[in-house]
Design a protein around this nucleic acid. Sequence first.
RNA 1: GGGGAUAUGGUGAAGUGGUUAUCACAGCGCUCUGUGGCAGCGCGAUCACGGGUUCAAAUCCCGUUAUCCCCCCCA
Length: 427
Amino acid sequence: MAKEKSIQIPRGMRDILPEEQKYWRYVMKKAEPLLEFFGFEKIETPILESTELFQRSVGEETDIVEKEMFSLKTKGGDSLTLRPEGTAPTVRAYIENGLSVRPHPIKLYYSGPFFRHEQPQKGRYRQYYSIGIETIGDGSEAVDAELIFLGYKLLSSFGLDGYNVHINSLGDSSCRPAYIKALKDYYKNRLKKVCVTCKVRFKTNILRMLDCKEDVCKEIAKDAPQMIDYLDDDCKKHFKHVLEFLDEAKVPYILNPHLVRGLDYYTRTVFEFLPEENITAQSAVISGGRYDKLVEQLGGSKTPAAGWGMGLDRIVEALKEKNINVPDLRPKPKVFLVQLGEAAKKKSLLLFEALRKAGVETKSSLGRDSIKSQLRIAHRLGVKFTLILGQKEALDETIILKDMDASTQETIPLEKIVDEVKKRLKA
RNA sequence: GGGGAUAUGGUGAAGUGGUUAUCACAGCGCUCUGUGGCAGCGCGAUCACGGGUUCAAAUCCCGUUAUCCCCCCCA
């Protein structure tokens, strides 16, 4: 008979097998209490959102919207998209559920899968996992600083250190236009030299020319005017205060005038957490910033906000690379129940249930008949005790209790076995 | 979108023109209805797919696909 062709996982997706789960649990178990302590409350939004949500927030000219969205048409003809990021859905939920009437700021966190149709590689998957936090309704410097501080604390709570915060300010609508104009003037005469994509960026998203990785463009960007010199008084003060907070909190940061981020909604503060060494394109583990215009843009009232997202796949990768000790929380069986013969097999079901009720982690292999193979499994599982219920024992209402380490065994009345096991496990 | 590497049982590897395609680990079965932690034996691969060269191809050539890595970009 011809074997059926097997089906492969789609590109850029991966399975997280049982033995991998400990890393993901570890991260969530560390993160959630810390986030909640800082006043963030959990929100869940759907995986699918209206495509327009991302077009209007992330921006039509960004790579994400231009070429990286998994979009689909519903039977009714609507265009939906697998969420490529978490901020826009959270803001949508904030507006739609009238959270604006609650005391501000509203502090929310979320976690789950996100989707971008990119070329997969190390630390970058088409389905990736992320935790994000957003503080909506407070424009003050303290919020930016708190977000960054919390990101820093989270990383160290995982046991990860050696990250720097790369930070910049993009100004806002009152000062950025003047800067854009200065950039245009600067690049106008040098347009012949820059790369093809930058020629397009010049028209659509000139800020992105600053973080182009082409050597020629980098060279030109070096001497380009910097936003920091064009910030108006409010923005300048805001940025200065954020940095003062970071100094005070001893969060290591690096000013990076070329950090602009690939999403259109950012204003003022933008930041990324990057490792001290071996920075590649996929190194950012946390990134975010302030987005004071986004709530309005999505139909809410004028509300400042800021947040960040953390790439869990990259965190897990780092935990493994740094050999951080992550506890395996899977329950370990303490007792294995061996049965021999029909009568014993029937009795063993009830005994198994009695042990479960008593809170004793028990495994058995009812499908197997030979004592040898059952004991071998018990050994592999590393149980402390094996209970052997054979034909003779079933008849006598007794059972053998075998200590696997000591290789000793004794016969015990069946009715006493649960208590006896409990007692010995405690000892 | 561009570049590089790789593809052999479930996993990891060996095999560089002629082997029943080898080994280790895991799985399953049997020896085995009464005892595990180094028992023995067995089962399990159309050598990614398609074509070509050759008396002969896992091995050489071409194409396709997939995966991984890098660039672009992002978390």
